[in-house]
Design a protein around this nucleic acid. Sequence first.
DNA 1: GATGAATGAGGATTCATTCAT
DNA 2: GATGAATGAATCCTCATTCAT
Lengths: 199, 199, 199, 199
Amino acid sequence: MSGRADRTRAELIRATTRLVREVGYAQTTTRAIARAAGVAEGTMYRHFPDKASLFLAALLEQHGPVVEAVERLPARAGQGTVEDNLVGCLRELATLREAVLPLELAMLADPELAAQRRRPPYPGGPGPGPPVRIAEYLAAEQRLGRVRADADPQRATMILLAVLFGLAVGPPAAPGPVDPDLIRDAVRLLLTGLGTAPG
Amino acid sequence: MSGRADRTRAELIRATTRLVREVGYAQTTTRAIARAAGVAEGTMYRHFPDKASLFLAALLEQHGPVVEAVERLPARAGQGTVEDNLVGCLRELATLREAVLPLELAMLADPELAAQRRRPPYPGGPGPGPPVRIAEYLAAEQRLGRVRADADPQRATMILLAVLFGLAVGPPAAPGPVDPDLIRDAVRLLLTGLGTAPG
Amino acid sequence: MSGRADRTRAELIRATTRLVREVGYAQTTTRAIARAAGVAEGTMYRHFPDKASLFLAALLEQHGPVVEAVERLPARAGQGTVEDNLVGCLRELATLREAVLPLELAMLADPELAAQRRRPPYPGGPGPGPPVRIAEYLAAEQRLGRVRADADPQRATMILLAVLFGLAVGPPAAPGPVDPDLIRDAVRLLLTGLGTAPG
Amino acid sequence: MSGRADRTRAELIRATTRLVREVGYAQTTTRAIARAAGVAEGTMYRHFPDKASLFLAALLEQHGPVVEAVERLPARAGQGTVEDNLVGCLRELATLREAVLPLELAMLADPELAAQRRRPPYPGGPGPGPPVRIAEYLAAEQRLGRVRADADPQRATMILLAVLFGLAVGPPAAPGPVDPDLIRDAVRLLLTGLGTAPG
DNA sequence: GATGAATGAGGATTCATTCAT
DNA sequence: GATGAATGAATCCTCATTCAT
């Protein structure tokens, strides 16, 4: 129980997430985290074996809401329009991701950190998550005849998420939230296609 | 005259690019760079004012080939198929980018490094580059009736490049080259569209 | 509570003062200070933001005793002889200054260090100090008729202290304590005058 | 004769003197000197075995004019007033010293540099210089009855020069030329005396 | 559990000096 | 004589981590 310990732990994670977003990974020192969390420097090591584990925990913390947001998608197959369903889901993903994108980038940029990602910090680890649910949704729509029969739902999902990630990070964007209009444009383009001829 | 200096400079850039790719930005210390380049640590500072400038130079070094690769694209409008043209171009981009992606990620992850990007290291700076050329190509194909009349070439280009970036970095990828098949799939998807009905 | 921290801080200041006196400012590296203080190099930075601040603190540490020594002077006006009073005071100043003269010289020789002196390290900063007290004393003696009526006490104080500083540093001196006889000679000369005629 | 080498040497000394005065000893790097002198970094070592020797040479360069200025003093004994003679001499000294005071301070602050001063850079070294000449002058005036018979000319000279040095450096003064009025005040004070009673 | 002083290896950078051209 | 690229030891400082209180 010990509500105090739990609060400290949560504070540490909140501080870490905030600092990485605001000042970048390089500037997020243990001292800065401790100060931002309002605890002593040594306290961190009561809750996490080392700094990398704290980062990992911060990253996973966000995973819950993301999963939830996508969990509902497959059930919407056949309702409304495909475009609206996808746009809604991707916008939610973009919003949630905004908080952790800097953490993800830090991991991508630092192999040593990324190595930690291999071994999930607790047995079982995070569930299937967004990619699987979106693919499920696309397959369902495919069965309903609202998505081309010759498309590969998994491949399409991969590309869909790649667009999302690319737009979130992309060169034109000063770091900041993804333009929601851009998300709709992307989904529409992916649905409609760019070409005029059958091939 | 200063063949030696030129060689040293090139060696430094090569070493930096290689190290960032292999061990990540955080591990790429000035000492490691010097050792890999076969020079003394102080020598670095005769060629670059500081470490960030060296990284920037390494990044820009790659810019030339990238620009060249895309420069030829607009001229191909109307020849072959749109799909093949785009796939060819994007594959080239992917290959070239492979070398600098870790550098780009480092910049994205470290605001301090990114700040350097604002002031281009030499007057004039890099030219328009890939986005503009690809948009030009799409517009040309549009005039030829091979791309939907109601598409926005610039917006489409943005999305095209976002896919490419997302695929290069994306969650599935163990760091490594982008699967060329994935590129073709993405282009085909973008051309054909995922949907069946107009909405 | 923090007896240990206080002791470390004092040790750092003592080590700094000693090293600057013995080997000069240029040789007084952070490593040497740490070694002499018996602490790790990083420990210095828990107590002082940077090296210059440590020097400044070492300088101010000495300020207390100096001020006290001169504080008593004005009260002696009219007692004993003017010569003895001044000689006693200046000898004390010379002794105290001996410890910090190298620090003062370092500041004079290095504009960057001197720049730190501008902003006093704590609000309020050091009080009026020696010059004012000596001038007060001279003015008091003047009212008692033991100092020429046409003398300017402030000007005379300035010159008195200039002699002291000049003797402490001056060309003849192998670095070391000021000869006390020289101080008496100087005071006597300043009181008696060198000339015979009014002009 | 090689006028070019001579000019380079002079340029190096000029640059050194100027830089030490303007930016302080610590900032006067060999690179800065070379740049300011308009020569390559390595060239310095054609003319001086090391940096300290260059500093020493710069210091001695100034010695000539100083000596000359004081050389004429003994001959003025008996002419004009003692005050005017001394004031004139000291003011000249102050002006000349202004250029090298930073160099002298640097030497005083750095024992390693000061060690070089012991062995004069060329046999014979500089002559007796100011102290002796001023003492000679005072002794001459003493014989003429214009200086107290019981004064010690050498001791008085020492004190006179100490005042000058102290005023040039002194705490109140922002670094800059010595106020000529202050010099006259000091001389007058030393001649007239501060006291009213015979002892 | 929490604290924060202490650690010390390691980081980027500087600079007097050397030497091939 | 002059050049300037190269050197590498040394500098100040940072920071994840430990441990006595």
